[in-house]
Design a protein around this nucleic acid. Structure first.
Lengths: 257, 257
DNA sequence: GTAATAGTGTCTCTAAGACAGTATGTT
DNA sequence: AACATACTGTCTTAGAGACACTATTAC
């Protein structure tokens, strides 16, 4: 314990961090038309955006995009700026989820990393690019990374796995599925998106259940046209399906009723 | 954008943070016997632990306990150490919930603060104390702080309010109520604890609902004695009430069934 | 017709929600 | 007997869950 009262606030007396980076795990769901398809739902796959490092440390390895915070910006600002600079992605849903501060996690020194996760609709990733410290920007199938035990730079594998766990949790209790969907969508699309993120989620009667007003909890609503008639789409099927949208209302779940 | 590849990892070229503090919002629920009571449930109140600052900056104001991280420890280690040093509290449920990094939030310099919240049973706070940079440690009613618009040091009012919002959310979707309860408790106690944290929570039929096996979601279970008979308590009532405990199973809630 | 998705019909089981009534045992 | 908590009885409404069945329409 310290005895000098000044020592507790005068940072000059202490070693200070060598940097406060933000790292961002950006997830998207890619869609691919099935070849033999007449009208059918596309194949979907959960992907994470990684860059190949061009410089020491971990040169040549895959890493999450990110970079150092500046004195004049908040961590959220940092994450947003780095995302834009490194990948050309901006204006997407991004949230902070954890700090990584184990001593020795970065060979460059004492680096306290702030991890964000972002959810992006595939279309918004079209203009992505690589910045000067990254050789390459690419989308990698989450399933491959998890199963291959592929190592990422720093502790980024752990960060990515934590981010994945977090979006799986959020997918079921918040309305984030909307980040992967168009504004209006069919219940089959919604079900597909949920299953793509949370493979264990199985609901044989999903559509029927969601059609019961109570089950939607006010979070989903049917889309109607100007005359108040139900609006349908036959993009993915012969028979047209009712379109839904998220209301914007916050889901209120409870263990206790 | 930078053009020198080295500039992105060589922190020496950049201003680095002046410190990375951890601040901890410790909540407890105090119980007080009602005076006129025969056997009755106690009054409960949600309190937060604050210290009165002895030194610049914000000398004399109330603040969350906390302090600076060291190079040899993780943020969680820091929070735990500061909690022990400043308040004598250790071994409690504590979790990280946000980072506070707005420029100018600390007059001592560029300080990126990491906020934890802790939930403590009243009994564990008996041995608390004040350390050298804190004049005083005390429990303050959350309701008073929220309603009085009392300012805290730094941005600690905001941090405290964010922590409060977080425990309200968690109270309903996780089993954290157990941090405020003995291992075995009656459903009335549980209901009281929930209501103390989340005043809006009203369930007229709470006990009946929880007695239905489905509603408990496997998270609550009845306590039985060695012979398998239901174990009851008449601590708070004339008629003995069934005791329950948390199973340790994780609640699985979902918007979508 | 076939394929692919989008539903509906029907049944059983059980929870939800309201609210009045009963149970227990100390004071 | 009064009190404070702990239930139970009873009724209505409605979701859950399973699964077979029908609907739509491009091809």
């Amino acid at each position: 314990m310290t005895t000098d009262p000044a020592s507790n606030y005068s940072a000059r007396n202490y070693r200070t961090p060598d940097g406060a980076p933000a790292d961002i795990a950006i997830f998207t769901i890619t869609t691919e038309q099935r070849l033999k398809a007449t009208k059918s739902l596309p194949m979907r796959e959960l992907k994470v955006l990684l860059i190949k490092r061009k410089v020491w440390p971990f040169e040549g390895m895959l890493a999450l995009p990110g970079g150092f915070s500046r004195e004049t910006e908040s961590m959220y600002d940092t994450a947003r700026r780095e995302l834009r600079e490194e990948t050309g992605v901006d204006g997407v849903h991004m949230e902070y989820f954890n700090v990584y501060s184990e001593p020795g996690r970065d060979p460059r020194g004492w680096m306290i990393s702030h991890a964000f996760l972002a959810l992006v609709h595939e279309d918004r990733l079209l203009y992505r690019k690589a910045a000067d410290d990254a050789a390459e920007v690419g989308l990698y199938a989450v399933k491959e990374i998890v199963e291959s035990r592929l190592e990422l730079a720093f502790d980024h594998r752990r960060i990515m796995l934590d981010a994945l766990e977090q979006i799986r949790r959020m997918m079921l209790i918040t309305a984030i599925a909307k980040e992967f969907l168009p504004e209006q969508f069919t219940l089959s699309e919604l079900y597909q998106v949920i299953r793509t993120v949370v493979p264990d989620f199985e609901e044989s009667n999903f559509i029927r259940k969601m059609k019961s007003t109570q089950s939607r909890s006010g979070v989903l609503e049917e889309v109607t046209d100007a005359m108040g008639n139900p609006k349908k789409s036959n993009e993915f099927s012969q028979r047209a399906a009712q379109l839904y949208r998220f209301t914007g209302e916050l889901p209120r779940l409870s263990l206790y009723g």
